[in-house]
């Protein structure tokens, strides 16, 4: 999808009417609204859209868009398997069997998402990831796909700039949810409504209350904010740092047990169990992910 500039206008934002100095329609259908001219829009990548979002200057346009996804895996079966999932979601994909082919394509072609296998002939997934940081302008989001399950490998990949990861083998529904979570970033659903429903859970953002199966669950302010953040970013791996900075609004050292305990309480108070269609998954050494289990609902 080509980049298009929209004429200056006002737009309904999370915090009311926002004057738009410069609007850029990016890939993925994301609109970056930049309040301050100090920020060079060209430098906003999907990878750091979180930052813009956290500043309250990023909104997205509604509407579903067809995405173009690169899938790189030396295993033909896996490429086909993933391609089928992607197509079911209404997107198109291009498969690559090795790292070098992918690298060449990334220089000439534009993709909305790259799904990278870790071990590949030619450049490995990690090498591609590192290479992309410097070589590809406006780098698309990257989903790492790996047979490796060691904690260190996963946190290394995420810390190296991957937007998320999937371990093989994984349930097709989970994979679809995770892909959508990455793509949803720019999608309209991040716009804040006063109430939002996720499965059986209804979040009242004004009262800061959660209703589950018509029962009201009492949460503290921080617990609610954590719940809200996780639901909004469901199926997406959030780093502990991101959660702390967003919910506690601090960079300062926060006892790591504090976050563990809050997540634990949210989990038990809201009964976030597979029976209820959700599970909280700890990515050791990195952060948390709230997973939706479609077959549970």
């Amino acid at each position: 999808m080509d980049e298009t500039c929209l004429p200056d206008e006002e737009i309904d934002g999370r915090f009311g009417k926002i004057p738009i100095y410069y609007v850029k329609l990016c890939k993925l259908g994301v609109v970056a609204l930049v309040k301050s001219t100090n920020i060079d829009v060209n430098k906003i990548r999907v990878g750091n859209l979180y930052e813009a979002e956290a500043m309250g200057c990023l909104l997205s346009l509604p509407g579903k868009t067809r995405m173009r996804i690169a899938i790189a895996d030396d295993d033909r079966e896996v490429v086909d398997f993933l391609g089928k999932i992607v197509e079911e979601q209404g997107h198109v994909f291009v498969g690559f069997a090795d790292g070098d082919a992918l690298a060449n394509a990334l220089l000439r072609d534009t993709f909305d998402l790259v799904i990278l296998d870790w071990n590949m002939p030619g450049k490995t997934g990690m090498q591609i990831l590192e290479w992309m940081e410097g070589a590809v302008d406006d780098r698309p989001p990257v989903m790492m796909m790996t047979s490796r399950t060691a904690k260190q490998d996963i946190s290394d990949a995420l810390n190296a700039g991957a937007d998320d990861y999937i371990t093989k083998p994984e349930d097709p529904n989970v994979i679809a949810a995770r892909i959508n979570a990455i793509l949803r970033r720019g999608n309209g659903s991040t716009a804040m409504e006063t109430t939002a429903q996720y499965g059986d859970y209804i979040l009242d953002r004004i009262e800061q209350k959660v209703r589950h199966n018509k029962t009201e669950v009492a949460l503290t302010a921080k617990e609610f904010e954590l719940t809200d953040l996780m639901f909004r970013n469901r199926d997406r791996t959030l780093s502990r740092r991101y959660i702390m900075e967003t919910v506690w609004r601090t960079n300062a050292h926060l006892a790591t047990r504090t976050l563990d305990m809050h997540v634990s309480r949210v989990r038990s108070k809201l009964s976030l169990t597979p029976e209820n269609g959700f599970r909280i998954f700890t990515v050791f050494g990195y952060g948390y992910r709230l997973e939706t289990l479609s077959n549970g609902v």
Partner: peptide, 30 residues
């Protein structure tokens, strides 16, 4: 790995770890 590497532990909330392990096997149980 266990036999070839040194122990390096971190703080873990055991209840949540057990719950998540249990959650991961929920489809099988179901």
């Amino acid at each position: 790995r266990i036999k070839s590497s040194e122990f390096s532990g971190e703080d873990i909330l055991l209840s949540d770890l057990v719950i998540e392990a249990n959650d991961s096997l929920w489809p099988l149980a179901k």
